[in-house]
Write a protein that binds this DNA or RNA. Structure first.
Lengths: 214, 214
DNA sequence: GTGGATATTGACTGACCAGTCAATCTATAT
DNA sequence: ATATAGATTGACTGGTCAGTCAATATCCAC
């Protein structure tokens, strides 16, 4: 019974660590990592200043935790997709879907990850370059397989293709984050299709009619 | 005569303002904007601390100046390219060339612009969102024209296409900046071709044989 | 119900650094 | 010569904030 009690306690209890992490997402998204104070996080979470340092060694570690929590889920998904025998378009579509849905579900968290980590490779990205590189490499593998199947052009290196794909997605999220692109369920769904169509099919009209001129 | 004298003076003189800007590029590239002190810039330039504030109102203004100097040159180039009656591939190729050559010529400056401004849209990018948006819109116009000519697919919105194009280039530079991609004259040249080929032609092999299955 | 461990509090400290300013130097104009 | 304006200097100030710590509260095990 003491066990059931403690489980209930954990479930229903405040779980301050999680509270702090969630508060940090909101604060980082609103004010930016560098511009906010640790006390802002504590206030937002409704806990004492010192408690942040009970659960985390430093302000940096809070951000690290948020990033890694999410990024690892993404890496897992990519590995999973990669291992299945699907057409490339579906694989890339699944990855795009995952990222877009992540944004739709928790824009603040994705904003923090993109703006404060992924796009801030000078400070934090440096620490997580390995994680970011890992994503690149996994996508690169998907491209390589597609090339071996003859679906993707062999003359565009897989590494470069992965970069173009990821760059397009990151720019898309950045556009949403800074209000440069319209948001909403329909836009999110359309964006998924656009990413895959642009990257796979290119911007040019099919050159089927190349010889049809004559 | 006083004019010629003063012109010579300006030409041959130390021109401390420029000295400070150039030093700032090196310091920002090496340590990052937030991590460096104003005294680091002064030291690197070999001038007194206070002189930085004689020429610039704040640390921020130094970065602003560096960004705008370069970004405006780029905007001018894009406008120029846009106005000429060239095939899209050549237009996009010219823009890609300009950016890649900018990096090849002064990697530190481009690193600062990308890392500290363009990719830091939370802090500085916010201030320069208008400039960044302008680049997007100009590229969008190029895409729109190509669509009207029937060269580009009409179903991919020009805004999205511009985003994919710019995102690919930015990711490319980011890869170089953080040592994730090989550098050197040949790689730079090849990258130019890859960007245009990927964005315009897509990753898939031409689907000429689409109907050949039957 | 006692003891030890863990959670929680918030005042305090020590370091850091952007920006100021009064003093000094240099150049040129008359 | 001398005056004026601009260039140059670097010590100093004021505010900010990450991280510490000693005190207090809560929990659980026996």
């Amino acid at each position: 019974m003491s066990a059931s009690r403690s489980i209930v306690r954990v479930k229903s209890g405040p779980d301050k660590r999680r509270l702090i992490l969630d508060a940090a997402v909101r604060v980082f998204a609103r004010q930016g990592f560098h511009a906010c104070r640790v006390s802002d996080i504590a206030d937002e979470a409704g806990v004492a200043y010192g408690l942040v340092y009970h659960y985390f060694a430093s302000k940096d570690e809070v951000l690290d935790t948020l990033f890694l929590e999410r990024w690892n889920v993404m890496l897992e998904l990519i590995r999973d997709v990669d291992s299945k025998p699907l057409p490339v378009r579906e694989k890339l579509g699944a990855i795009t879907s995952f990222i877009v849905d992540s944004y739709a579900h928790d824009p603040d968290l994705m904003k923090v990850i993109i703006v404060e980590v992924t796009r801030a490779a000078n400070s934090f990205g440096q620490t997580h370059l390995a994680q970011i590189r890992e994503a690149y490499e996994l996508i690169g593998e998907i491209v390589t397989k597609a090339q071996e199947e003859g679906v993707f052009k062999p003359e565009i290196e897989a590494r470069f293709a992965a970069m173009a794909f990821y760059g397009t997605i990151e720019q898309l999220l950045t556009g949403w984050i800074f209000g440069l692109r319209p948001q909403g369920e329909e836009h999110f769904e359309r964006a998924k299709w656009l990413v895959v169509e642009t990257v796979c099919g290119g911007l040019e009209t099919s050159v089927v009619g190349e010889a049809s001129v004559s």
